Amino acid sequence: MTATARREFGAGPLSRVAALVYTLLVVEVLLLLCAAPGLLALLALERHVSNLPLVAVCAVPLGPALSAAVYALHHQRLDLTELHPARLFRRGYRVNLRGALLVWVPLLLWLTVIAVNLVNLPVAGVPGWWAVPLVLVGAGAAVVGTNALVITSLFAFRPRDVARLAGYFVLRTPVVAAGTAGLLVAAALLTLVASEAALAALGSVLVLALVRGAEPMITAIRTEFTS
């Protein structure tokens, strides 16, 4: 089979759909495997506010796994003759492990502090309206942190530059920020209505939606901040 024929074979609509399904399945399996230690412990935890710090600890392995999934889904081309999602995932995990943890762990710590304060407002005797600014701060941190995870997954910037770009592009690309916020809300609702297992089962689909929604930010960073 000639190179032209191979390209034609892998470039049709059905081939692209098949390639996408295959890529999502492979990335989903690898995502779950890498996050499995924390996810299994999380499923064993009782749903009680006193366990919030333990939930954060269980979520630590998820950060590098999400980063690797972002890397794989962004770089994979939907051509049946050139499918390497597992290879891309492994490379993304290896290259981005340190950067992902530097973004993910502080984000988890910050969100845990906010969550603990929220659930303890009545005990502390703080007025109920304080919940509003706390929720807004938490939502803003989650969106900026997600931006930072995408950036550090795809670009080799210093951690402080990643943080600056993540905050800058919340204002620069509000559509991306709104899309990210919508995904986070959907993930939270799915967890509350169903379970953490249901959220984990849709992990690769949510990451794909995140990558596609972040394309304006990714393109702008590549054009303006890389040589």
Results as ranks from 00 to 15, higher is better:
residue 140 G to M: 11
residue 127 P to S: 07
residue 119 V to I: 03
residue 130 W to M: 15
residue 161 D to T: 15
residue 132 V to S: 01
residue 154 L to E: 06
residue 139 A to D: 00
residue 143 V to K: 01
residue 127 P to A: 04
residue 141 A to L: 15
residue 159 P to A: 02
residue 156 A to T: 14
residue 151 I to P: 04
residue 128 G to K: 08
residue 120 N to F: 05
residue 146 T to C: 14
residue 156 A to S: 14
residue 153 S to T: 11
residue 147 N to K: 01
residue 123 V to Q: 11
residue 154 L to W: 04
residue 143 V to T: 00
residue 161 D to Y: 08
residue 129 W to P: 00
residue 124 A to Q: 13
residue 160 R to K: 04
residue 148 A to S: 12
residue 161 D to F: 07
residue 132 V to D: 03
residue 137 V to Q: 03
residue 126 V to A: 01
residue 122 P to E: 09
residue 136 L to M: 13
residue 153 S to W: 09
residue 157 F to G: 07
residue 128 G to S: 14
residue 125 G to H: 03
residue 139 A to F: 12
residue 140 G to Q: 09
residue 144 V to T: 08
residue 136 L to S: 05
residue 136 L to K: 06
residue 132 V to I: 15
residue 147 N to S: 05
residue 144 V to G: 02
residue 127 P to L: 02
residue 160 R to I: 08
residue 127 P to D: 06
residue 158 R to W: 09
residue 132 V to K: 07
residue 157 F to T: 12
residue 156 A to P: 05
residue 150 V to Y: 04
residue 135 V to A: 07
residue 141 A to Q: 06
residue 127 P to I: 01
residue 127 P to G: 03
residue 129 W to E: 08
residue 151 I to V: 15
residue 143 V to N: 02
residue 121 L to F: 05
residue 153 S to L: 09
residue 122 P to N: 02
residue 127 P to K: 09
residue 148 A to K: 09
residue 129 W to M: 02
residue 145 G to K: 12
residue 151 I to C: 11
residue 152 T to M: 13
residue 123 V to A: 13
residue 129 W to N: 01
residue 122 P to Q: 02
residue 124 A to W: 12
residue 146 T to G: 08
residue 138 G to K: 04
residue 130 W to C: 04
residue 134 L to D: 04
residue 156 A to W: 09
residue 136 L to E: 08
residue 125 G to W: 05
residue 131 A to C: 07
residue 139 A to G: 02
residue 120 N to S: 13
residue 151 I to A: 10
residue 138 G to L: 04
residue 152 T to E: 14
residue 124 A to C: 03
residue 121 L to N: 01
residue 152 T to Q: 15
residue 138 G to V: 02
residue 148 A to P: 06
residue 119 V to S: 04
residue 148 A to Q: 10
residue 136 L to G: 02
residue 156 A to F: 10
residue 138 G to M: 03
residue 139 A to N: 01
residue 149 L to W: 08
residue 124 A to L: 15
residue 157 F to A: 12
residue 157 F to Y: 08
residue 147 N to Q: 11
residue 138 G to Y: 05
residue 150 V to T: 11
residue 123 V to H: 08
residue 126 V to M: 00
residue 128 G to I: 06
residue 120 N to A: 05
residue 161 D to I: 13
residue 160 R to T: 14
residue 148 A to H: 10
residue 161 D to V: 15
residue 161 D to A: 14
residue 133 P to Y: 05
residue 120 N to I: 01
residue 153 S to P: 03
residue 125 G to D: 10
residue 144 V to Y: 06
residue 135 V to W: 12
residue 148 A to M: 12
residue 149 L to I: 11
residue 141 A to P: 00
residue 145 G to P: 02
residue 141 A to R: 07
residue 134 L to Y: 10
residue 154 L to K: 03
residue 160 R to G: 00
residue 150 V to P: 03
residue 161 D to K: 12
residue 144 V to Q: 07
residue 148 A to I: 14
residue 135 V to G: 00
residue 155 F to I: 11
